[in-house]
Every structure is written in C-alpha cells, then in structure tokens.
Computed example of a mutant assay.
Amino acid sequence: MRNKALLAGLAIVAVAVLYRLFSFTPELVGFSGPTMGTTYTVKFITHKNAPDEAMIKDSVDQVLVKVNKLMSTYDPSSELSLFNRSAAGQSYEASDDIAYVVNAALKISELTDGAYDVTVGPLVNLWGFGPGKHEDRVPTQEEIESAKSKVGYHYLSLDGNQLKKTKDVYVDLSSIAKGYGVDQVALTLEQYGINNYLVEVGGEIRTKGMKLDDAHWEIGVESPAGGHSIAQKVIQADNLSIATSGDYRNYFEKNGVRYSHTIDPKTGKPITHRLVSVTIISDSVMLADGLATAINVLGPVKGLEFAERNDIAAYMLVKEDFGFKEEYSKAFKPYLN
C-alpha cells in the first residue's frame, strides 16, 4: 500500500511538472523602485525556467544598492567618498567596479581633451548641484577659480586597481554611474536566462530581444518643450544601449538667467550654448551615459564634429528662436524611423 501511495504521489508531481512545462505562457512583467536619487524600471518576458519575479527584483535591488554604495558622492561612506577624502600621493586599492568605471571616465576625459572631466565635482558642488543643502546662488569669479584649481583629470591615474591622485582632486562619477548600473542589471537578468528585456535607470536604457508577439521595444526621446509624456523622436530599440543628457530638467534661475547643472570644466561655469539634449547609442549604457554628457558640454557644433570624428551615434536637439532643430551624426541615421 505504501509503495502504491508513493507511486501515486510521484505521478501527481510528475503530472504537475509536465503541466507547467507544456502549459507555460510567456508574459511581459515588470517592476520598479527608487535608486541613485532617481527611479528604475525593469520589464522582461518570462520563461519557464526563470525564478519568480520577487526573486529577480531582489537581485536587481542588490545590484543597484551595491553600485550606489560604491559610487555615490552623496554617501560619505561610499568607496568613492573614501577615495575623495584620501590624501594626494597615496595609492588607493580600488574595487573592480570602481576601477572599471573610472578607467572609462578617464578615457572619455582624454578623448574630449577635458571637455568631459571626471574630476569636475568641485565645480558641480560650488554651483549647488552636488551633495548637501544649497541655495540658488551664482558664485563669485574668485570662488570659481578656486574650485577650478582642484579640477584636472590628468592629476588622476589608474594602474590596474591602483587609483592615485597627485593633487587633491574630487572624483565625481554621477555622469556615468547610472549607465553602469543599467549594464549591471542587464547582466543580472541574462544570468537568469532572461534575453528579452528593457532596463531603465533615470532615463538611461538598455534593451535586448523583443516584446511579446515579436513586437519591438520603442524608446521615445523626450521633447524639452513637452515634458515626460511627449516624445520628440521614437527609436526602435532592439538590443540597444541608450543614454540622454539634457539641461532642461536640472537648473536654477537667478535674476532672469538660467543656470544649467551641466558645468564646462574649462570655464568653470554652466554651459550657455543652445544644445539642450543629446541622445547617444553605444556599446554599453555606461559609455553612452558619459559620451552624452561630453557632447552636451561641447555644444552643437563641436559636439557633432566630435561624434562624426569618433563614429558615435548621436542625436541632438538644438534650441532655436521658435522650437527645436534636430541634428544627428551619420552613425545615428540607421536608428531613425
């Protein structure tokens, strides 16, 4: 009797397993949450061998908490904050993540001859766009020159994981860390066998595969004039890494003058040209994130020249007296609908 009961039980389990295998229907599911001072969203197509959604969300949250704990300038205990407080001339053993991201940031700094500068933090903080409480105040030229004296990517070096500064510079990875976070979340999904997904952190996006019924992922480039719900351009985004940099969200106004959060390291002041939005498609969201900021600093003319010279897929919106003008590099043309 016991053997018969055991066999019957096993048969029920086998039937349940077979039913799940043959009756499984893929679904588009998703979740979101807060991270890095902004929000994230993950959408993906389920498959029969993937763990449940709650477990995947827990893994994603752990990844994002780790990136923030390593690279936040707002967290005084983060690895980046500890390095920034370390003495000049000392060698610092950086984690693999910090070394990887700083290496990419240094390459972009060199490629743009300092238009993008990974040590721009003192100027960002001076203008009130960094950690801590700030008032909307225009710094004096003396204060700007003092902050500029602490900026210079060439004072920072990386040898393997050995990070060193020859001057008391302040490293700020805000322009590239979100992109790195997106890439790490995407890698986590793929480790679970998920190959159809969209990951977004603060507007930086990575997609892979397709949606249900072979529908394409579509990404709208936000119109600076229309807010979050209006798209200036829609990109068919299959297997893409996309990042956008713009000055139309984070700024302050003083005496009728608008001051952008994007700081030009060479002048020490917010950008004043008419380029208001840059969208980059690259091999990784981390690179797209950094390159979008770099071109946003360079401006519409030099930025487009830089994109063409380096075969970068760039889409730019330039403010005109009435509305906005589209500019894009040759490498971006295949993505236009």
Rank of each mutant, 00 (worst) to 15 (best):
R2I: 14
L10Y: 10
A14Y: 09
A16K: 10
L28Q: 12
G30F: 08
F31I: 09
G33C: 09
T35G: 05
T38R: 07
Y40E: 03
T41R: 15
F44K: 01
H47Q: 13
K48F: 14
N49A: 15
E53V: 15
E53K: 15
V60W: 00
K69C: 10
L70D: 06
M71H: 10
S72G: 08
Y74E: 11
A88D: 08
G89E: 10
Y92W: 12
I98G: 00
A99D: 02
A99Q: 06
Y100S: 14
L106W: 00
G114E: 01
A115D: 07
V120G: 01
P122H: 00
W127C: 04
W127V: 01
D136M: 13
R137M: 07
V138K: 01
E142D: 12
S146K: 14
L158Y: 05
L158A: 04
K167D: 11
S175L: 07
I176D: 00
A177D: 02
G179N: 07
G179V: 08
Y180I: 05
G181L: 00
Q184L: 12
L187W: 12
T188N: 06
E190R: 11
N196V: 03
E200M: 07
E204C: 08
T207P: 07
G209R: 02
L212Q: 09
W217L: 04
E218A: 12
I219M: 09
E222S: 07
P224E: 01
G226H: 06
H228S: 14
A231P: 02
Q236K: 15
D238K: 10
E253V: 11
V257T: 14
D264Q: 08
K266Y: 11
T267Q: 07
T267S: 14
G268A: 09
L275C: 10
V276K: 06
V276T: 10
S277Y: 03
V278Q: 06
D283R: 14
S284M: 09
A288I: 04
A288R: 01
A288Y: 08
T293L: 04
I295S: 03
G299W: 00
A313P: 03
A314M: 08
Y315D: 01
M316L: 15
E320P: 04
F332K: 05
Y335F: 15
L336W: 13
